[in-house]
Design a protein around this nucleic acid. Structure first.
Length: 452
RNA sequence: GCGGGCGUAGCUCAACUGGUUAGAGCGCUGCCCUGUCACGGCAGAGGUUGAGGGUUCAAGUCCCUUCGCUCGCGCCA
């Protein structure tokens, strides 16, 4: 018999079907038993009665066991209709159960509150939770719609290397790899220099980059390994061209979530972000933001070169309450705070055509226009204490006509966390790594490969 | 790296200023239940209070060391 999906059952009333499903819960009732069965398309109640031999099998169908279940799809009697659950008007009258893989007793209730440590130490189990499935369904829509939107805007997807011969940003803590003969190699902290090279090839490019940071950070928004949604585009007038594309992207993602993830949004009890009219989110220079903070809160941070997390939270509240937007761009960070390739604004010396995008209290993007003149680029590198010779591979692109360009890097996990309203970015990461956490898939071995 | 907090049953948490035998809910085990939907009822098992040391007549509770986790900051996406 062909397998029927649970979402199709309502059209098969009266017929016998085979479903493949996992046990959400079982409710024993003496000589009968109820199941909530779940497959990738939904949940349905199934019932065993009047069949002692099936009931005997049912007793071993523990929660999370996977089953093939045959049964007749019935309309529920009027008194048994439950409009509070999906498929509450039908049920499957079980004729046989085949246990494909019996689950052990779960170490905790799947849908109860768990500490983050328990949540992360038991990922193969906890990812099955309704809440976790909702979070990663949302993430899947984010990555899918990111690709859709970027292609629609003429961007070509490319893959950047993760093993690199140096640190692109010249500052971030890197993971060193001991393998290459006579050369130092590192895990990439960003696809930055490669995506700039690719602008000379495809003009507009994007990638899902894995980035590695060896920073000794212990916060709710840092990971040792994260996914950066990177984009870079040529022939720009200035950084606002990039901000405009990113605004369109965030609106596209938000709409996609609204149409494709209705159930997940309900599960997470979250609302889609407030989006303002216009083709570009509210934006202000860093100094304007600091002046505003001083004026409104009395806290003077106008001599700081950057925003503190507290300031980012305040600005997001301000944008939400007074500008009708959950997103706000902050532009014109000082040259001292940005990498060597960042374009200095001729009309505002000392400050750059760069931006951060803040979303619900957190920085989710850094971007900006890049220097495209090779001599200026070398000078900027030297001014940051870097040796241009170490960048000769990258600099070739600039000798051969790379147009004015710029782009952004966006933290996928931070974005997911903020869309989903979860507190810690690790909850928006399937298998998070930080200073203390890395999962061990195989038994530990010594240098000779023997089990310890 | 710096600063705060936490560590008690499989999970989530109690245990007032130190004071009998460390409790609850859920889960687990056994029995009962033909309309449940987080089913319900009865009975039961389960703890070196993270580890080590100290103070005290007495330590889950106070002190020191150590391990683990977590939150904030720096840094960043």
């Amino acid at each position: 018999m062909e397998r029927t999906l649970i979402k199709e059952l309502k059209d098969k009333i009266g017929s016998e079907v085979l479903i493949g499903a996992m046990v959400d819960v079982r409710r024993d009732q003496g000589k009968m038993a109820f199941f909530d069965l779940r497959d990738r398309t939904g949940v349905v109640q199934a019932v065993v009665f009047g069949k002692p031999e099936v009931l005997e099998v049912a007793k071993n169908a523990s929660p999370e066991s996977s089953l093939f279940v045959k049964g007749i799809v019935n309309k529920r009697p009027e008194k048994m209709v439950n409009d509070k659950v999906p498929n509450g008007d039908i049920e499957l009258e079980i004729t046989s159960i085949e246990i494909l893989n019996q689950a052990k007793a779960l170490p905790f209730d799947l849908d109860s509150e768990l500490n983050i440590d328990t949540l992360l130490d038991n990922r193969p189990i906890t990812l099955k939770r309704k809440r976790e499935r909702a979070i990663f369904n949302v993430q899947a829509t984010i990555t899918r719609s990111y690709g859709e939107y970027m292609r629609q805007e003429g961007f070509t997807e490319f893959q950047a290397p993760k093993l690199v011969g140096g640190d692109a940003e010249g500052g971030a803590e890197v993971f060193k790899v001991g393998y290459f003969y006579n050369k130092d190699a590192f895990l990439a902290t960003s696809p930055q220099l490669y995506k700039q090279i690719m602008v000379g090839v495809f003009e507009r490019v994007f990638t899902f980059a894995t980035a590695f940071r060896a920073e000794k950070s212990s916060t709710t928004r840092h990971l040792s390994e994260y996914t950066s949604l990177d984009a870079e585009m040529g022939f720009i007038k200035d950084h606002t061209d990039i901000m405009r594309v990113e605004t369109g992207l965030m609106k596209y993602i938000s709409e996609a979530l609204g149409s494709r993830n209705v159930d997940d949004l309900a599960t997470l009890n979250i609302e889609l972000p407030k989006l303002p009219e216009g083709d570009i989110f509210p934006h202000m220079k860093l100094r304007e933001a600091q002046a505003l903070i001083k004026e409104r809160t009395g806290t003077d941070k106008t001599s700081e070169p950057d925003l503190e997390p507290e300031d980012e939270r305040w600005l997001c509240e301000y944008a939400h309450d007074e500008l009708g937007s959950d997103f706000i761009f902050i532009t014109h960070y000082p040259v001292s705070k940005r990498p060597f390739y960042t374009y200095e604004d001729e009309s505002d010396p000392g400050f750059t055509k760069s931006f951060d995008l803040l979303f619900r209290g957190v920085e989710i993007t850094t971007g900006g226009q890049r220097v495209h003149d090779v001599e200026m680029l070398k000078q900027k590198a030297i001014a940051k204490g870097l040796n241009p010779e170490n960048f000769s591979f990258y600099l070739q692109a600039f000798n051969y006509g790379i147009p004015p360009h710029g782009g952004w890097g966006m933290g996928l996990e931070r974005l997911t966390a903020k869309f989903c309203g979860v507190q810690n970015v690790k909850e928006a990461t399937l298998f998070p790594r930080d200073m203390n956490r890395i999962d061990t898939l195989l038994s530990k071995t010594d240098d000779e490969g023997n089990d310890k």
